[in-house]
Structures are given as C-alpha cells and as structure tokens.
Amino acid sequence: MNILWLQSGGCSGCTLSFMGLEEQDLLSWSNMLDLNWLWHPSLTENSAQETKTIVQKVLNNEISLDIFCLEGSVIMGPNGTGRFHMLSGFNMPAKELILQLSQKAGYVLAIGTCAAYGGITAAGNNLVEATGLQYDQNQFGSLLPKHFRSAMQLPVINISGCPVHPAWVAETIGLIALNQFTESSMDSVGRPLFYANKLVHHGCSRNEYYEYKASAQKPSDLGCMMENMGCVGTIAHADCNERGWHGNSSCTKGGYACIDCTSPDFGRVKHAYQSTPKIGNIPVGLPTDMPKAWFIALSTLSKSATPKRIKENAVQDHIVISPEIKQTKR
C-alpha cells in the first residue's frame, strides 16, 4: 500500500510518538504490512525535487495513493488564504495540497487532535485560523465539507490525541491494510472505536481514591485528581490506562490530570487546565452518563466512609499507611 504523510500546523509530536511504536520497531512493522512510504517528513530519504516529482505523480494519477495522513491543523489564515503556511518548495498554501491529496486518497487519516479538530493550534485567539481536516472543533465540515468521502467511501478518520498513541495509528493503518476498517469502526466524531469507546478512567490506578473521593491537593499527591486537580479522565474517551504508554504508564500514573486531549474541544476550554472548575462545591464535568444527584449523593456518602489509610495516603507522594494484613486464626 502506498502511504504519504504530510505535516502542517502542528508540533511533529505525533510523528515522534509514532516512532516509539513498541510492539515492533516502526520499520519492521511497515515491512510486515507491506507499506510503501511515498513520503514521511522524518523517515524517508527524498527531499525537495524528488518529493515534488512524487507528489506530482500522485496528482496525475500515475501513482495511487492508498492512505493519506495529515499531521497538524490545516492553516486557513489570513482571511482564508492559507498563506500562514506556504508549503516549502511548492510555492502554494499547504491547505491547497492537503485538499488535492485528500481527493486522491483511498483513506484520509487525521493524525492527532490538531489535524482532526484544530486542537492546540486553534486555541486562544486563533490568529492563523487553524482548523481540523473535516471538523472545526466539533462542527462537521471545514476544509473538507461534511459530505466529503475518500475513494474508499469513508469520511476522514480522526485519530485524535495530543499526541496520538503510537498503537492507535498502527492499529488503524493495520485494520485498513487488512481491509477491516469501515464506517462502523468510528464514533460520531470520526474516532476509531477501538480506543474511543473506552474512558481514561477505565483502569486508572487511582480508582480506590476515586471511590472514596479521597482527593489530591497538589501535584505528586497520590489521591484522585478529579476534585481539585482538573482531571477529566471520567469523561475522556481513550484507552490510555488500559493500554498504557511506554510500557505501562499514562498521564494519571505520571501524577497529573487527564486533560481530555482526544476531545474535539481540546485547547479551546476556557478555564485553567490544572484545577477543577466548580459551581459551588460541585466539580463541573462530572461523568456524562450518570444522574448528577446520584453522583453527589454517592460521593458525599463515600467521603464519610473513607478509611484512614486512603484519606492519608491521598495527600502524600508515597504510601504512608499500608493496607492491613488479614489475620486468619489457626
């Protein structure tokens, strides 16, 4: 399969993350799937004229393009001209080439939250008018219109995440290579279901603290980070804690909040990220599929039942009280 990977308004972080594929090194994995990389900004040999020739051949239908990956947002500014990112050597706005390549590709993949929804690049005043490929935040239709379908009749596949997990990309491409990726493999905002129908909360190592609402108060505390530290793992769609990063780790294992980096509005949340916004004493952003009253009732109740061990360990950076050892009579 021919694959071409382009970068626009992003940080290269998704490429760097992807290069850390753990199951197999990236080259061996590519060979295994018979991937033919026409161009990847960090991996392939060709530069400048050689690259331009390849791209021209794709546009002239001389080379078929099976998978087109975009990393980074589409830069539309200023005033929709796209001139804030002129593709080097091509003397044209990057968004033009992105559009043309998307129309040639069997599958179009948005790699990372920037390419999918605009992400961090579209944050704040969004001076550069950054947007996702087929979404602007959660609004369907942007550079590519709502009705866009790639040659294989699919909308853009949004492998969101800031950065993406290497295996999310590898598994999506793997499913495509085996011809097993269909429209039913995606959720309602275009993300592959195999990781987007999980929550970061699933498998979080702090779940005992969560059950008792024993909360961390400062970075490095062991407690649950939902109440004070801005963690939204209970509503963030991703399998980070089940799948694990770099072996068996994750953001919450690293001692900091999940900030929902796979979400369409990542980067455009207005409150401060590292503290939990509250109305009165109630954190905003409780689990979305649970009646709020129940949540509050259960959590206040469990707070009053918190064992001393959990209450004290929650505000330390290491375990100060070990679990009790059960005494059995001989």
Binding site: G280, N281, I296, A305
Partner: peptide
C-alpha cells in the same frame, strides 16, 4: 447519620446551584 448528612449536603448543593 452519614446518609442523612449527605442528603442535607445535596440539598445545600442544589440550593447553591
């Protein structure tokens, strides 16, 4: 008592909202 307390607290939250 804890159940009672959490009920009262929930009411307080509701009032606050």
């Amino acid at each position: 008592q804890a159940v009672e307390d959490s009920y009262v607290q929930s009411l307080n939250y509701q009032a606050e909202i």
